[in-house]
């Protein structure tokens, strides 16, 4: 029981660090030195020390938004085997609960944005409501594939210990398409380039950043922390698929897992450096690609399993 808690805490503590890796990679590609690697911690501390300004238009939902989106991300992490270690909770169907909890977080993020009566935030909210619909379809399709391969409906049956290796053995090459699809979902759900540009300067072209324009102080800190954890969640899934091995020792596994995570975050950084953000009406096609890939992988696997 101690180990899962330890890894869970460790995951939450290191999530901001991993996010900073993306910034570093981007700075490297831009030929810049970039912010310090601990920048996200400094930001969080700074925000937590401040007070807040609330808009006259807002209600209690505005304050609920950051708490629920952070809470959903933290709860989701409780069910996820981090670095192949057993998660705190695991039961039949926990994946569905986790995906819907993340949906709850999204509902409140959107509601908090709509609370401000700002036209920009409404625009961001509309996009935040739109793109994840296709992501959800992709994720559930992936789930069907994983269920088909493992016969179980829990996160720990896919990502615990050497289980990912079983998935690879059962499915083979089609799982590669799934990895790509999940990476696309990662980019979309965490609003990274090429879906959204977190570093752009124009509110009209943002998704996530524009939705939190009016949050300040600890509220904003919680949102930031929540988004780091959410990114960590999706990256862990992708990482476990590209590094499916289990060494049997928690520390070795942890270290190797961290290295693989760095690679995934690095790829996110590289993607952000070499790609431009898509025009908003091109994004659905990009996300739909992930759906097509998983669908395709499922059909092929089905054909082979006969």
């Amino acid at each position: 029981m101690i180990k899962p808690i330890l890894f869970w805490l460790l995951a939450m503590l290191t999530a901001p660090f991993f996010s900073a890796v993306i910034l570093k990679v981007k700075a490297f590609f831009g030929g810049k030195k970039g912010p310090p690697i601990l920048i996200n911690y400094y930001t969080l501390f700074k925000l937590f020390q401040k007070g807040s300004v609330y808009s006259h238009s807002t209600t209690f939902i505005f304050k609920m938004g950051p708490m629920i989106s952070l809470g959903a991300a933290v709860t989701a992490l409780l069910f996820l085997p981090i670095a192949g270690q057993p998660p705190m909770f695991s039961w039949h169907g926990d994946v569905i609960l986790v995906l819907y909890l993340l949906g709850l977080g999204r509902f409140f993020t959107i509601a908090a944005a709509m609370d401000t009566a700002s036209p920009f935030e409404g625009m961001g909210a509309a996009r935040e409501a739109y793109f994840p619909i296709i992501c959800e379809a992709t994720l559930f399709l992936t789930l069907i594939l994983f269920f088909m391969l493992s016969g179980e409906l829990r996160l720990s049956a896919y990502f615990f210990g050497g289980e990912p290796l079983h998935l690879w053995r059962a499915a083979g090459a089609p799982l590669f398409f799934v990895v790509i699809a999940l990476f696309i979902v990662l980019l979309t759900e965490n609003t990274r380039v090429p879906v959204d540009d977190p570093a752009t300067h124009l509110e009209l072209t943002m998704i996530h950043e524009v939705m939190v324009l009016d949050h300040s102080g600890p509220d904003l800190g919680m949102i930031e922390l929540g988004s780091y954890i959410k990114l960590f969640f999706y990256s862990t899934i992708v990482t476990r698929l590209i590094w499916p091995y289990d060494m049997g020792n928690a520390f070795v596994d942890g270290a190797l897992f961290a290295a693989a995570m760095l690679a995934v975050y690095g790829v996110v950084g590289i993607t952000e450096s070499v790609m431009a953000r898509y025009r908003m009406d091109k994004v659905p096609k990009f996300v739909l690609t992930s759906f097509a890939l998983v669908f395709f992988a499922t059909i092929i696997t089905l054909e082979f399993m006969k």
């Binding site: 083979g172 090459a173 092929i300």
Partner: peptide, 24 residues
């Protein structure tokens, strides 16, 4: 997916999707 031919054929199928999705 034990046959290499099938891996290649799945790439062919994938290329159909790409060609359907290409706008340029």
């Amino acid at each position: 997916m034990n046959q290499p031919a099938d891996a290649i054929l799945s790439l062919v199928l994938l290329s159909i999707l790409f060609s359907f999705g290409s706008s340029r």
